[in-house]
């Protein structure tokens, strides 16, 4: 029994080490774009960047708490951020990434969502963040142009 307990304890310790967070940490495909584009520039002129591959830099200001399937990257200008969305399970961002710096590469996507789509999206996000009780669909206005990056690779550093 003692031997069994020791084996289980060592296994758990090894497991923890195996998935420990190291920084810098690479996610997804290696970055190929050398010159970063300012997030403020993408947000100011979305149509000229739509469909283009870009590299952006900034702080991670929010992380999908359940699936790690998106991060919000703070812009170089105040009050602005951009969502970096990745395919579920392909890249999983940890919540510990909040506040760290990220270099992220992806394709700019500019879409116009109807009010109904925006409500559905907001409801989903509120559900993920456990804030469904604060969700107020009547406060959502639309249609609205949504700019995000369909993410392919990222490096998170201190």
């Amino acid at each position: 029994m003692k031997k069994m307990s020791a084996v289980m304890l060592i296994s758990m310790l090894l497991m923890s080490l195996a998935v420990a967070q190291e920084v810098p940490k690479e996610y997804g495909k290696p970055l190929t774009v050398k010159k970063p584009t300012k997030i403020s520039e993408i947000l100011a002129n979305p149509q000229t960047h739509d469909g283009k591959r870009v590299l952006v830099e900034g702080p991670v200001v929010d992380v999908c708490p359940k699936r790690g399937c998106w991060i919000q990257i703070g812009s170089d200008k105040e009050f602005e951020m951009i969502q970096f969305k990745v395919e579920d399970g392909v890249i999983v961002f940890p919540m510990e990434a909040k506040g760290l710096k990220v270099r992220a590469e992806g394709i700019v996507s500019v879409t116009t969502l109807t009010r109904e789509q925006l409500i559905e999206q907001a409801r989903h996000q509120a559900e993920e963040q456990g804030k469904l009780d604060e969700f107020k669909p009547e406060s959502i206005e639309g249609p609205k142009t949504v700019i995000r990056l369909n993410g392919e690779g990222a490096i998170i550093t201190k």
Binding site: P59, V61, G74, E78, F79, M81, K98, G99, K158
Partner: peptide, 15 residues
């Protein structure tokens, strides 16, 4: 803090 961010004029986030 690791970082500070203002998502809107009335909010400050410290990480």
């Amino acid at each position: 803090p690791r970082n500070a961010f203002r998502p809107d004029p009335s909010t400050l986030q410290l990480f």
